[in-house]
Every structure is written in structure tokens, then in C-alpha cells.
Design a protein around this nucleic acid. Sequence first.
DNA 1: TTCCAGGGGTAGA
DNA 2: TCTACCCATGGA
Length: 303
Amino acid sequence: MRWTIEVPDGFALKPIVLSHGWHQCRPFEWHADTGRLVRVLRTDRGIRAIELHQLPMGSLEVTLLNASSILDPAETAWIDSAVARILAFDIDLSGFHALCASHPELEAVPRIGAGRLLRCPSVWEDMVKAICGTNIQWKQAVTLINRVAELGDPAAEERHRAWPTPEQVAAAGPEWLREKCRLGYRSPYVAELASRLVSGDLDTGPIERNELDGPETRRFFLSVKGIGKATANLLAILYGHYDQLSIDSATYNFVGGKYFDGEKPTDHQITALYEPFGEWAALAYWYDAMLSWWWPSIEADLA
DNA sequence: TTCCAGGGGTAGA
DNA sequence: TCTACCCATGGA
């Protein structure tokens, strides 16, 4: 089964897939050679694996990988809305793209259709992955995340698994996360997050419905144990609030190397550097780092 | 062996 | 608000 989805003007699939490390984590699967993004989704009818591919005229082609499944219009519409969430169709980048035009170092951003950041279908999944990425090398974080993903339900007759639900993680418990996933001291944080979602003590609805402003969004994420300032800011950035940078060890390395002669800058110095970008500060930093670091290696691939 | 990674919680000032 | 100190894990 195959259909197409219309995309916002100037949208490009590859830049958002490669915007950060989520595409390396199951149940995402990025095939760089063919430019296809596979994602497993849990609908109210079952576990579906879809493959996204951008057509030459811009729109997205969706291929259902569950060969024996036929979707009704309601389920197809649900998948379309999930794709829109993952690929941040709702984000209006026109202000940022206009700003990039007057900054030579960011000139490539609008030209290649970059600026959006890849999200998971649920805030729950974004939060777990963010917690797993704290104080750890990213490659190792991917290993942790993929072990947690093994808890998810498999699609019938397919190798794909959905991301586990909060109920599944809460039932598995902190010891399972520690011993089987090797989450270490992060395991009680993830277990508590799952339990709070199951009990209704925490509700991600306001984030999903985009009802909160930047400060409210950051306060929401900070209320979760295991999520501190850097991670809360990162998650707020994923949900469209760019006025506060997420400063982590990679930020010190990049900004120190490029602007402070190799010396580690203070948080205040970093903030001051991108303050002129105002509400777009975090994106300005993000693509400053991206274009300087590893973007050149893939830029030819994007042309 | 020691250091530290895409930090955060906690106690004490 | 700021600073030590501790926290699991495994790669470098």
C-alpha cells in the first residue's frame, strides 16, 4: 500500500532526518544510500512500519511495509498526522530562514531546506531518548535506547517493533532497565517517568497540542526527574521554542574551538554569542555547529 | 589505569 | 543562585 503526503514549502527530508541523532535510534531506520526513512508506528489497529521517501516534485511517498495489511482511511489519516509530527510540518521557519540570509555562515540553511529537527511520534519517546543521552557518549546512548526499544511489540510477520508504551516500561520496572538495558543511574528516572504517565500524574497532552509557551514548556520538562536544564532546553527546542540554548559538552567544545581559541567558554559567553538571534538563538547555534562540523561531509549528498 | 561523554540530583553555603 | 560531590556505564 502506497500514498503521498503534501509537505510545507521548502521542506526537504534529508536535512531533518540528519538534523540530530534520533534517526540512528530504533524504531527509526535511516537508509542513507536510498534516502528512505523507516519508522514503526503504533496505531489503534496494530503495529505499522512505514517508509518515507521524498519524490522529485517535493511531496512525500509513504509505503506501508506490512505487506498483508490494508489500512482504512481513518488509520491512514492517523499515520499522516504522525508523519507531520515527526517531521515538524507545523513549524514556521520563515523568520529563521530570513535571518540566515543575512548571516553568511548560515546561508546554506534555507538553500538546502534545513532548520527542522526530527521528533518522535510521542513526547514520551522523546523524553526517554533525551534522558538516555545524558552524560554518555552518543554512540553508547544509541545502544541503550535500542535496548529499551526491544521491549516494544513486534508487527505481525515483520521484524519491526513499535516503541514501548509507558505501561510496558512501567511494568518492566527499574531493575529491568538497569540489568537488561544497562541504563545505570538513569533507570529509576525512566521508570518513574513511565509510572507518572501511566498514573496520570504527568500529562504530555499540552505539549502535543502545542498549548504551552517556551517557559511553560521548559518547566514541564524540568518537572521530570532525570531531565535538567540542558535536556529540558533541548526538548523545548524540538517542540519549537528556540530562545534558550541547550548547552552541553558538545556546545563547549564547538563554541570554544570556533570562537574562544580552544578555551572553554562560560555559559554566559555562549548565550551572549547567539543572543543577537533572539527567538531563533538555539537554531542559530545548532546550524552554526552543524554546518561547521559534519555538514560538509554530507552537503554534496544533499545537492 | 584514569578520564570523561550530547548531565542531573542533592546538600550545603 | 552557586558550588562540590556523587551517580552507572563503557569507550578512549
